Simulated assay, not measured.
Amino acid sequence: MRVVAKFGGTSLGSGDRINRAADSIAAAVAEGHEIAVVASAMGNTTDDLLEEIQFDAADPDRAEIVSMGERTSVRMLKAALSARGVEAIFLEPGSDRWPVFTDELGEVDAERTKEAAADLAADLDNVVPVITGFLAEGAEGGVTTLGRGGSDTTAVMLGNYMSADEVVIVTDVEGVMTGDPHVVEGARNVAEISVDELRNLSFRGAEVVAPSALSYKSDRLDVRVVHYQHGDLLGGGTNVVGEFESLIDMREEPLACLTVAGRAMRNRPGILSELSSALGDSDINVDAVASGMDSITFYVDETVAERAENILHQEVIDEGTLSSVTVDDDVAVIRVMGGELPNQPGIISGLVNPLAEAHINIHDLITSATSVALFVAWDDRERTLEIIQDHLS
């Protein structure tokens, strides 16, 4: 099996942890597996280096300075592997076999990187490359960086381009947890999670796998997250399954928009839960929810709009902080989904502006980490879909 193993800063934060990492790599090699290693800077080295730059450093100088953390890690880990009789080399930008490149704009040069990664993969049965994460070689030489979480990006990207069977992210948590174990009691490991679920969690604060890395995950490439104390690269942790699929979807049936207003509702804990529960208790599915300073809007199937209005109206009567409920029928929703959306600056304006030029009024717009939902009048749905498809094609 061909594996790309990425060791985060915590998992390389001391000599003991470097030994543990080297033991797990050596054990996998002894079992006949092909291993490539991506190493982050030890501990908090990168942050410490950044804090010490108390002057106006040019970008190339800054990149060279912060690269020292990763450069040290790969040398330490390579030496630990050599001490165990494992044939290993360390690679950093400028090395003859370096595999990660950026173009003139600082973006990953996919073709050049694919070619270099394939060449490196062809020799994995003879040597273990220990590669600096986070770093790349620029179009004119020199060091560039891949941004926050760049070591994760290096690992999953190389796993993809090296035709690996699996990428193992070795970190300081036992895979993906049901909650932050430092905050909530009883947090447990999730055995499996979809790439879409993890991408949404990552963009909302979960520090497990960098969102930028997950866009390189294909359906055939397994990604697994394990704790550094586990000591086994080939089992345990959380499996990340699936791949991002860009999709433009239009709901086939019209929605109704029910808005509950109340000036004091923003200071009323539990009001959203109570309104949602009232609809749920009557088996009314809520397609989407939007909230404002003084209102909450529910989108439901138009066929149940009258029943939903009566339910919410009763809540208005019973709850002194609410003023009124109103309904707007014949609403269409078009959803744009895709793992690359968060990496596209201006994606919202790129969708909204063409609709404005076509004199299509947007009833509502709801975003998440990897999707955008546009609500328009039912009669405008086909034209809206056509415009969005043209823009994203």
Rank of each mutant, 00 (worst) to 15 (best):
W98A: 08
P254G: 05
G142N: 04
V331I: 15
R204C: 04
F203K: 15
E253Y: 08
H227C: 12
E115V: 10
T132Y: 00
M157D: 08
G133M: 02
Y216D: 00
R381H: 08
D23C: 03
G13Y: 10
I169W: 09
G43S: 07
R224M: 09
P345T: 13
A21S: 09
T132E: 00
I347D: 12
D287Y: 11
D219S: 13
W98L: 10
S246R: 13
M76H: 08
K114N: 09
G142I: 06
T370Q: 02
V336K: 03
S349F: 12
A332L: 00
G231P: 08
T153H: 12
E92S: 05
D23R: 13
V300R: 02
L247S: 15
L341W: 11
M157H: 11
N310R: 14
I18M: 07
I387N: 02
K114M: 07
V376L: 04
E252A: 14
P254Y: 09
N267W: 09
V372P: 00
I35S: 06
V352F: 01
A288C: 02
T45S: 11
P99A: 09
N160Y: 03
R251L: 12
E192V: 14
T384V: 05
A213I: 03
T145D: 06
V66K: 04
E357G: 03
E137Y: 07
D294E: 15
E386Y: 11
L247I: 03
D56P: 01
H227E: 09
G69C: 10
V333P: 01
I366E: 04
D390Y: 09
R75N: 06
T326P: 00
A261R: 15
D222I: 02
L247E: 14
G142E: 02
T72S: 14
G179D: 13
H391I: 14
I366F: 00
E252K: 06
G280K: 08
G175A: 12
R188M: 15
A187Q: 06
A210Q: 11
V183N: 01
G147C: 05
D318I: 04
R263W: 10
L135V: 10
L214P: 05
L120K: 01
L385A: 08
E52P: 00
D283Y: 12
L198N: 04
T46C: 10
E92H: 03
S371Q: 13
D56I: 06
G43Q: 09
H33P: 07
G350R: 14
A27K: 15
D119V: 01
T145W: 07
A118P: 03
A83N: 15
I248C: 06
V170C: 15
V286E: 06
E111C: 01
T259N: 05
V226E: 02
D318F: 05
V128R: 00
S11L: 09
S282Y: 01
A28F: 04
S40F: 07
G69W: 07
V376P: 05
E64I: 11
S371F: 06
I25Q: 03
A122R: 04
M293D: 06
E64H: 14
Y216E: 08
A210P: 00
T326W: 03
D328I: 15
T113A: 05
G179V: 01
A118F: 04
T367D: 00
I317D: 13
A80E: 13
A21Q: 13
R75S: 09
K217P: 01
D249S: 13
